[in-house]
Simulated assay, not measured.
Amino acid sequence: MILHRYINRQVFMTTVLVTFILVMVLVSGRFIKYLAEAAAGQIAADALFLVMAFRMPEFLQMIVPLSLYVALLLVLGRMHMDNEMVVLQAGGQGNGRVVRSLVVPILMATMLVGMFSLYVTPRGDAEVNRIFEEQKDRSVLELLTPGRFHVKGSSDSQRATYAEHLNREKGVLENVFVADARFESQGGAGRLLTVWAKSGKLVVEDGISYLLLTDGLQYQGKPGQLDYKEVGFKEARVRIGGEKTDSRPPKVRGRSTQELMEQQADNKEALAELQWRISLILTVPIMALAAIPLARVNPRQGRFYRLIPAVLGYMLYVGMLLVCRSAIEDHKGVLPWYLSMVWIHVSAGLVVFLLYFGARLFRRRARP
């Protein structure tokens, strides 16, 4: 029991530390991406933290297996460097006892990843998809930052909107500028409509959002020509949103595991997603068991002698799963028997078996 508590405590502390570092790196990069989208007016600033919160289970289900794997390599590698493993083996505590000591943390990590992969992450992805769908329907007024140009459009049309000030108490924009450009098929300049107004506010009619402008001027024409039309107006409406529609069904990553099981026979994407969720669970015990023999080093080799090759092996394992997932999604027609993630796990399990018993088998075969 003392040995179990000693190893488990070291593994737990190292796993938490590695997980924290990896989460900070991953979350920081993703948060910067979302922050840039918020600055460009694509999503509202108040939705950033909701999106990050719903994305967190997806980050953890990818990080926890790697964190446990690296923690086992570091902890067991240190024990080999400090000759603690030599003392344990001299006392009759071999690899089998070490494996039994790690059963609890491996099971806990497997259950945690399984809960995230099968239940929590799909719900979080569905919520993120809903939030982004709502952001697409939000008006320019809701996303507009005073003092900045908000540009939105496609290859054949673009709209730039600017407001000098936003009176939040009255919900009114002041000194509003709107430029609506249409481009020709060859990419040349088309019609340009420019509107300036003293003030503007959001109105909704029949489910369509309009920007009601007051006391302004409208200029319409084609760049490079002198036939611009100038029209003054007391009030004018600019359509800034489409009709409200029902939210689309969640993407395959946002569907529940039960739905994927019902759809896997007819939907390749559902089959690939279901296999991927199960694969994330299987990576925990497979790579944790692989870390025990891979951490075996002698003091001359150094503590990190096998760390980089072991991490590269983990990346190869996960990379093969991702490639197989893409192949299943893109395959047309009947899926061949060999195109399945099962064979990747079987191959990984065979490698783990050889790490434990390969040397013993080779010695037996080498005997005359």
Rank of each mutant, 00 (worst) to 15 (best):
L289W: 07
V311I: 15
D246M: 13
T245R: 14
Y317C: 05
A290I: 09
A288T: 06
R253C: 01
E329W: 09
E262M: 12
S256V: 07
A265K: 15
S326Y: 09
A290F: 08
L274E: 03
T257S: 14
S326I: 07
S247H: 14
A291N: 04
L282K: 03
D246W: 09
Q258G: 09
I292K: 06
M261S: 03
I328R: 09
L322Q: 12
C324T: 15
L312V: 15
V311S: 04
E329N: 10
Y314E: 03
L289S: 01
I286E: 00
K332W: 00
I281K: 03
A288I: 12
H331S: 15
P285D: 01
A288Q: 04
V297P: 07
E269V: 09
Y314A: 05
G302C: 08
P309H: 04
I328F: 11
V284C: 02
S326C: 00
V297K: 01
V252A: 01
A327V: 00
D266C: 12
A272Q: 08
T257A: 04
V334E: 14
V311N: 02
S326P: 00
P285W: 01
R277D: 08
L294I: 06
L312M: 14
R248G: 03
I278W: 12
N267V: 13
L294M: 14
G319D: 10
S247P: 12
Y317W: 06
P250V: 08
E273G: 08
P249Q: 06
R296V: 13
L322K: 06
K251E: 13
L339E: 08
D330K: 15
R253F: 02
D266T: 15
Q258V: 14
S326G: 12
I328E: 06
F304D: 02
Y314Q: 08
R296M: 06
Q258F: 13
P336C: 03
L339C: 09
G302I: 10
I278E: 11
V252N: 02
R325H: 14
G254F: 05
I278S: 07
A270N: 05
L274Q: 04
Y338I: 11
K332E: 14
W337I: 09
G313R: 02
L271Q: 13
P309A: 00
M315L: 15
I308P: 03
E259K: 11
L321E: 09
M261P: 03
P249V: 09
G313I: 06
